[in-house]
């Protein structure tokens, strides 16, 4: 088990180095950083001096090593457009995105799993048909449209919920949270539902399909022949066997919720990393883009590592390498 984790960790480090390399390429090949930093009337000598200062004249390998070392400490330099350190910017934006994504992932799981199980067990009930039909809508409507519709209904027409921003936030150390204030919670509702709907329908359909598959297997039939009740069969034997693919997809989805919440964030003007990234692209703010890329890659790698470990927890067949007793 430890050896397995170690191996996965090594692979993760390799992936991160590759990402760092690509990101570093951004600095080297997209525009000249000195040009971005100085004004029109700086002389050539001053520019050269700045280059020397920033270490841009050092060999490629040295620069890459320096970039990697800095990135590991969370240092990505100064934002070109906002003139504040990127690390500070990240610290400010990260909690907003994480809160939004994790809440919506939980929402998707908590609603999607039971719906999927229900749809698999009661295949012909009218509720199942309703779930399946409405899930089609959830899958096929683009996120931004759902967001705009929700804003229109609950924000503009009913005026129940705020349509943008995070509301009031409370600081716990450097972490800003909207979970502890009423306005913060209210502000969270619409964007998290918008973000959750697609994931929820996906999880529901996946759980249903897997569960139907498992319910057809011999060991369920054998369990029934031993007199086991429906509850034990469905929730003890079938559900656990359903989980393996669900874990994979949920893990990947959580990654993409965090990484690609930008659409939802721009619709709701949510002050998270997605919004920051879009603005950074607009301003060609390379340090911010680089930091964002590295961070997202890190989140994906971390989630995959957790998923791999969860696999081994759930499935005993993977536990002993070599397999044989």
């Amino acid at each position: 088990m430890l050896g397995f984790i170690f191996k996965r960790l090594l692979q993760s480090i390799l992936v991160m180095l590759a990402v760092a390399f690509i990101t570093f390429g951004l600095f080297r090949f997209v525009g000249d950083p000195v040009n971005n930093m100085v004004g029109q009337d700086t002389t050539l000598e001053e520019r050269e001096e700045l280059r020397e200062q920033l270490g841009l004249n050092d060999p490629f390998v040295v620069q890459f090593a320096r970039f990697t070392a800095n990135a590991m400490r969370g240092e990505f330099g100064q934002s070109y457009s906002l003139r504040i350190p990127v690390s500070e910017l990240l610290r400010e934006r990260l909690p907003a995105t994480l809160e939004l994504s994790i809440i919506s992932a939980i929402l998707a799981l908590v609603l999607g799993m039971p719906m999927g199980i229900y749809a698999a067990i009661r295949r012909d009930s009218w509720l199942t048909k309703l779930f399946l039909t409405s899930s089609l809508v959830g899958v096929s409507l683009p996120t931004f449209l759902i967001g705009i519709l929700l804003i229109l209904i609950f924000g503009v027409m009913l005026r129940w919920l705020p349509t943008f921003g995070r509301g009031e936030v409370v600081y716990l150390g450097w972490w800003s949270t909207g979970l502890l204030t009423v306005s913060g919670l209210k502000a969270l509702i619409l964007p998290s539902i918008t973000l959750a709907i697609f994931q929820m329908t996906l999880i529901m359909r996946l759980v249903r399909a897997e569960m139907l598959e498992v319910l057809r297997t011999d060991f369920i039939k054998f369990g029934r022949a031993r007199g086991l009740g429906n509850r034990a069969l469905h929730f003890r034997h079938a559900l656990k066997n359903t989980l393996i693919p669900v874990i994979t997809i949920t893990g990947l989805q959580l990654g993409s919720i965090i990484a690609f919440s930008l659409i939802t964030e721009s619709v709701f003007q949510w002050p998270g990393m997605g919004l920051m990234f879009i603005q950074a692209i607009g301003n060609a703010d390379i340090p911010v883009m680089a930091a964002y890329l590295v961070l997202i890659a890190f989140i994906f790698v971390a989630i995959n590592l957790i998923v791999d470990i969860l696999y081994v927890r759930v499935d005993p067949r993977l536990r002993v390498s070599g397999g044989k007793k």
Binding site: T217, D218, G223, A225, G227, L228
Partner: peptide
Amino acid sequence: VRGKRIGMIFQDPLTSLNPLETVGAQLIET
């Protein structure tokens, strides 16, 4: 009646048992 008074044995032992639970857990449950 099932399992208690009439026991059943199926053809394929490779698929008749839940792969994620120990044989003990499955026996004890029954």
